[in-house]
């Protein structure tokens, strides 16, 4: 614990330096001419659900830019062919610290923003899991496990979904024939299907790459992609970036280092000391997402119910939740 505090203190001071280094890439791309923003305003309606970001122009106007325009890096474009190879010499892993999760849902939202997903499309889902009748349930953020023996990839008839050398399992929306066999094969329910056409699929403003998973296509499958487009820029995936509690660690197994943005730790040590495990290990899928068990939780379970009604409703069938409701705690 002491160790951690020192860490955090140091990182605060370092924040600017890190920012400076990392943004030096993005700043280059994002210095742009303001008129461009305004010129297109009539052409496209604002998407009702899309979040907007407000910017001030030097002549005192406020420009609202849809947040989906953030995180587009045309200069980092990776062709579908290249995206099958993966980032050389890396083996990505994720560690999710269940003891710190309080169902803040920021990872879900961050991911949806980054991948231009609708409200109900969740690559990252938060489940309420109860291991046994005596144990208190815990929040369980679950994305694609990027398995080392991926059942989904095994069954794909076209190779539309594939596993790369850097551990990442991706879907090529331009190859997928929508047979949904992979969906039925994935024991983690990580895959979602595009059941209908959506206006956003028509956005052809940038060439398609399986690495960004945007814009998606009707009748094909999508899932968590570990954000290789961000990784290539040395940035954490959207979910890890947006978690306020630092629940999600991400890193390279070869380096044996994972980070949640604020804290950098050794992967093997973390797993060893905290009893890290993989979900449904017995199925033999060899996931690359590790969990640190929900022991000594930082938050009460009730704290996780500070969410909108719809989300609350999702957990109504968990017996423990019914109990809490009866006691009036939720």
């Amino acid at each position: 614990m002491k160790n951690k505090q020192i860490e955090e203190g140091a990182t605060d001071r370092r924040k600017f330096l890190k920012l400076g280094l990392l943004t030096s890439f993005t700043a280059i791309a994002s210095t742009s001419i303001i008129t461009n923003l305004a010129a297109q305003e009539e052409e496209t309606e604002k998407e009702a659900t899309g979040e907007v970001m407000r910017l001030l122009t030097p002549d005192g106007k406020i420009v609202e830019v849809s947040a989906s325009n953030i995180n587009k890096y045309p200069e980092a474009f990776i062709t579908p062919e290249e995206s099958r190879k993966g980032i050389p010499d890396r083996k990505f892993v994720m560690v999710i610290d269940l003891a710190k999760c309080k169902n803040a849902r920021k990872c879900v939202e961050g991911c949806q923003k980054g991948h231009n997903l609708d409200y109900h499309q969740e690559f990252m889902q938060i489940k309420l899991i109860q291991d046994n009748p005596l144990a208190e349930p815990y929040w369980f953020p679950k994305n694609c496990m990027h398995c080392d023996e991926p059942p989904c990839v095994k069954v794909c008839p076209t190779g539309a979904t594939f596993k790369r050398e850097d551990n990442i399992v991706l879907v090529d929306n331009e190859r997928c024939i929508g047979c949904k066999f992979c969906v039925t094969s994935c024991p983690y329910s990580a895959r979602i299907f595009n059941w209908e056409h959506k206006a956003k699929f028509d956005d052809k403003s940038q060439p398609y790459s399986p690495e960004t998973n945007v814009p998606g296509a009707t009748g094909t499958v999508m899932k968590c992609d570990f954000c290789p487009d961000l990784l290539r820029q040395g940035l954490l995936p959207h979910c890890a970036q947006s978690c306020p509690e630092g629940v999600i660690y991400f890193g390279d197994r070869n380096e044996d280092i994972v980070t949640n943005g604020a804290e950098t730790v050794r992967f093997s040590e973390l797993i060893n000391k905290r009893g890290g495990y993989r979900h449904l290990e017995h199925l033999g899928t060899k996931p690359n997402v590790y969990y640190l068990p929900a022991v000594d939780k930082l938050y009460e379970l009730e704290d996780g119910f500070d969410v909108n009604e719809e989300v609350k409703e999702r957990y109504k069938n968990v017996p423990y939740v019914q109990e809490l409701k009866k006691q009036g705690k939720i």
Partner: peptide, 21 residues
């Protein structure tokens, strides 16, 4: 059952013989 009938020929263009399909 298939989402993309227009891509049916991909089955023969990019076959993977590990797939039960």
């Amino acid at each position: 059952c298939m989402g993309r009938l227009d891509r049916l020929h991909y089955l023969f263009m990019y076959p993977r013989i590990q797939s039960p399909i």
